[in-house]
Design a protein around this nucleic acid. Structure first.
Lengths: 346, 346
DNA sequence: CTGAAAGCGCTTACAG
DNA sequence: CTGAAAGCGCTTACAG
């Protein structure tokens, strides 16, 4: 019968029932039966009894003894948001197949949380931390892998997009379409990708001979998660600044917000203004028009972060040099970009 | 100087440094100094030293001793997805302010994971589980709160949307707009909301005198997360079935997929066909056209789930009766619905 | 008011 | 091949 799930037995109880020592049972359970040359017959008995009684080791006791928790912490800006969760999906893929679990916390850019969460996770004995789009303030006595964190510090491994290529991809696409006056929306100052991406845009523009008009550059300010900030900033761009035929947004959500503002102003996308996003979140392809965007391999970045962290935990490596693992973007051309209007405002 | 974060001291070390017993130090640290009438002066010394040495109790040892983990488990179908993460945001809000952390796992509808994860979380001593849009197979010796799980079983608390109201809201909106031939896309069989929602639609339709034409009812089959399944099923609806002027989709993502298929077929939304979604995920408002949808208070459902679970953990309540906490939908009218085309195909 | 000691449930040297 | 015993770092009766 499907036995009522009462509290599972302890190792001591199981051993007593089997008339064996805790040592022996523990070894068999942990797959070290052969290593300790425990009789096959005994091993079978143990395994059978364990299954029958639904025994599984109390991981808290194990953690205390081994000083290992098989747990990592993940810190993200905001869990209710597409970027982080795409990365989380990848992290989960890797972690769980190695028997690790993870805690997630969202700091929401609050400095008390940014400071407090890593300590709290440490007190909970996490063996490592993955920081997504988050700059870690303090040095910690455990391995840290950062996804798009852009801090170069000893012992920190960074998973980073090749921003030079990303910028080049987007700008050469716009150039090919004949765009000359391109507006840009930079990320919020607190976003760790902002500067890196902007620098890369500057270089790519120079390389491609594209002029960056300062009056066509805006920056997100509001910390709101949705498209609102993009709409807001685009309205400003539209009102007080010069004309433009294309817009490169900091991310997809911002691009969607921008498109809203553009339409409000009676402009058609992509006929009048082309818009390029960044990230390729799920919603980018279902948006209308489907967004042309620079795709970041987010899930893969999560996987890489997790497997790298697991390696560091396993091998006890504490890289004394900063290490960067570069991943590469793709340009996904959809319907939000088109040739620049002919005879347009130059 | 900002001391290099070495491994933090243990209680024993701290006590030794203070020339006090571990008992005393532990009591002060845990805020029980007054309760045990420990000299104010001593308390201050302890707190000061703790801060100076960066002491914080090893939670693993504490958990083992207290047989408490201050951790709950959350199981969702898929973490890279808007519905679950909206709920997770609410869960986090409540949990963290009570000092609880949570593990997240995504079962992805794989039955081995659906079965295995709860056990794994149990072995990790979680004190309770929140299941989001997931039917829990086994009975567990800890409290469980289910969000949209729709199982009525002893000891299980359900957070559920008022589906009757939801259906009524959507259908009366369409009726007011003059729609008579309404197509429906039901959820996948594995989604725990599917039946409940469909039954509610049936009743609301009867109440409102709206006919449900069996040939205008389709069901999602593919387990894919994106809008693909919605597009697919709408194409079928369009090809082989009778005409319709409105479509009520199982959720927003499906609605977006449906709109894609409608456009493909040369139909305009909402001019030719009105579309109503469900959930009001972030993308619903930025979609073009912005989706008219039945809003579920997802974040709030997460908060309610977490605070209910914490209450059960705190008070050791194991409801012997199923309990349902009902939350209420709103109809958010945006641009994907319009009056039925006049003289349309009736 | 403060402390010595037991014990949470494991793993793992050490011994035979 | 198997077991007795120590100990991970806490909390908490129990004692005084």
């Amino acid at each position: 019968m499907p036995q009522r799930t009462l509290k599972p037995p302890s190792l001591r109880e199981l051993s007593a029932a089997l008339n064996l020592s805790q040592s022996t049972v523990s070894r068999v359970i942990n797959g070290e039966g052969d290593k300790f040359r425990i009789a096959r017959k005994t091993q079978e008995r143990v395994l059978q009894a364990a299954a029958a009684h639904g025994y599984s080791a109390n991981t808290v006791a194990r953690s205390l003894r081994q000083k290992r928790s098989y747990t990592v912490g993940v810190i993200v800006p905001e869990i209710s948001e597409g970027y982080s969760t795409a990365v989380l999906g990848g992290i989960e893929d890797e972690l769980l197949k190695d028997g690790f679990f993870y805690f997630v916390v969202s700091h929401r850019h609050r400095s008390d949380l940014l400071k407090g969460y890593p300590r709290m996770m440490l007190a909970r004995a996490v063996e490592g931390i993955i920081a997504v789009d988050t700059a870690m303030e303090d040095e910690l006595p455990i391995p840290i892998v950062s996804v798009s964190g852009h801090q170069h510090r000893d012992g920190l491994v960074n998973i980073e997009l090749d921003h030079a290529q990303a910028a080049h991809l987007a700008l050469s696409h716009l150039k090919t379409l004949g765009h000359k006056r391109i507006a840009f929306i930079k990320g919020q100052v607190f976003s760790s990708d902002t500067n890196r991406r902007w620098d890369a845009i500057g270089e790519a523009a120079k390389e491609l001979g594209i002029a960056i008009h300062p009056q066509l550059v805006a920056q997100l300010e509001s910390a709101d998660a949705g498209p609102g900030p993009g709409t807001e900033v685009t309205r400003q761009l539209l009102q007080s600044k010069g004309p433009f035929t294309a817009l490169f947004a900091f991310n997809d959500v911002t691009a969607m917000g921008a498109i809203l503002a553009l339409r409000e102003a009676g402009l058609r996308v992509p006929k009048d203004v082309s818009v390029v996003g960044f990230d390729d979140v799920l919603a980018a392809s279902t948006y209308n028009p489907p967004l042309t965007t620079v795709r970041q391999p987010l899930r893969n970045m999560g996987r890489t972060a997790a497997s790298t962290l697991l390696g560091m935990i396993r091998d006890g490596i504490s890289h004394s040099q900063p290490v960067t693992i570069t991943v590469y973007p793709n340009l996904v051309v959809r319907k939000s970009t088109a040739p620049a209007p002919t005879g347009a405002m130059e």
